[in-house]
C-alpha cells in the first residue's frame, strides 16, 4: 500500500525518537557509566569534543585520506575500466581476480597491508583506494561493453566514425554504470578509511572510537560513530541523487 506511505507524518518519528531516547536515558542511568552512556552524556561529550576541536581535527584527518584515496580511485579506475571494456578478452581474464579481491573482507587483508605499506598514511590510502578503484573499474567496464545494440545499429547506418560513435553512443551509454560504480566505490572508501584508522594508525574518527574503547568511554565512541554515520549519509545520498539523475540513460536493453 504505497499510497499510505506517501503522506509523511512528522510526529511519528519524533514520538519514536522521544521513546527511544527516553528509554535509553532511563536504562543508561541505571547502568555502570563505564559501560553504557545515556543520551545526555553522549550529547555532553559530543559538545565538549566539538569545543576542544578534537572531533573537527579527527574529521579532517579522515576526510583527507578519504578524498585523496577516492580521487585516486576515480583517476585510475575509470581509464582501467574503459580499457577492460574495450578489450573484452582482458576484462574476462581479470574479472575473477577483481571479484575475488572485492569479496574478501578487508579486515583480513590488514596483515598484508602492514607488511607492504607499514601503518602510516600510505597504508590507509591504499585501503581507501584499492577497493574503491575495483568497484569503479568493474562497473565502467560493464558500461562500456554493454552499449545498447539498437543505438549502435542506428549510428552505424548513419556512418558514424569511431569518435562520433564514442561521443554519441558509447560514452552516454556507459555513464549510468560509471555513476553506479562511483556510488559503490564511495561506500567502500568510507568503510576503508575507518578500517585503516582502527587497525593501522590510530588517528581520525576511527581513532577516536578506538581511543574511546581503550579509555572505556562509550559516550566518546558513540559521538564518533554518529559523526561517521552523518558524513557517510551525506556522501552516499549525494551520489544516490546523481545516480537517479542518470538512471533514464540506461535504456531498456540493459
Amino acid at each position: 500500500m504505497p499510497s499510505r506511505l506517501t503522506k509523511p507524518s512528522v510526529w511519528l518519528p519524533i514520538l519514536s525518537l522521544v521513546l527511544v531516547l527516553g528509554g535509553w536515558e532511563v536504562v543508561g542511568r541505571s547502568i555502570d557509566p563505564l559501560l553504557f552512556a545515556p543520551p545526555s552524556a553522549v550529547a555532553a561529550t559530543l559538545a565538549s569534543l566539538l569545543a576542544t576541536g578534537e572531533l573537527q581535527a579527527a574529521a579532517q584527518v579522515t576526510m583527507k585520506a578519504l578524498f585523496l584515496g577516492y580521487a585516486l580511485a576515480i583517476i585510475a579506475g575509470i581509464p582501467f575500466g574503459v580499457l577492460m571494456g574495450a578489450l573484452p578478452r582482458l576484462g574476462d581474464i581479470l574479472q575473477p581476480y577483481l571479484y575475488a579481491i572485492f569479496s574478501t573482507p578487508r579486515v583480513v587483508v590488514v596483515p598484508l597491508i602492514i607488511v607492504w605499506f607499514g601503518i602510516g598514511f600510505e597504508a590507509r590510502l591504499f585501503l581507501v583506494f584499492f577497493w574503491s578503484a575495483i568497484a569503479i573499474s568493474v562497473n565502467t567496464a560493464q558500461g562500456v561493453r554493454h552499449a545498447r545494440p539498437d543505438l549502435v545499429e542506428v549510428a552505424r547506418s548513419f556512418r558514424a566514425n569511431r569518435i562520433e560513435m564514442a561521443r554519441h553512443v558509447l560514452i552516454p551509454g556507459a555513464i549510468p554504470f560509471v555513476v553506479a560504480g562511483l556510488r559503490i566505490g564511495a561506500e567502500r572508501a568510507i568503510v576503508g578509511v575507518i578500517i585503516g584508522e582502527m587497525f593501522l594508525q590510530i588517528v581520525g574518527l576511527g581513532g577516536v572510537i578506538q581511543k574511546g574503547s581503550v579509555e572505556l568511554l562509550p559516550a566518546k565512541m558513540l559521538s564518533a560513530v554518529m559523526v561517521i554515520a552523518v558524513l557517510g549519509t551525506i556522501i552516499v545520498t549525494m551520489l544516490d541523487l546523481v545516480e537517479k539523475r542518470f538512471q533514464s540513460w540506461r535504456g531498456e536493453s540493459t
Partner: peptide, 29 residues
C-alpha cells in the same frame, strides 16, 4: 505506517554506519 515511521530511520542509519565502527561498542556491552 506507524511502524514504518517509527522503525525505518534507525535501520537506515544502521545501514550507512560501517559495522566496524560499532564493534568496540558491542565489545563493551
Amino acid at each position: 505506517k506507524t511502524a514504518y515511521w517509527m522503525l525505518n530511520p534507525y535501520f537506515s542509519a544502521l545501514f550507512v554506519t560501517p559495522t566496524i565502527a560499532l564493534v568496540p561498542l558491542v565489545l563493551v556491552w
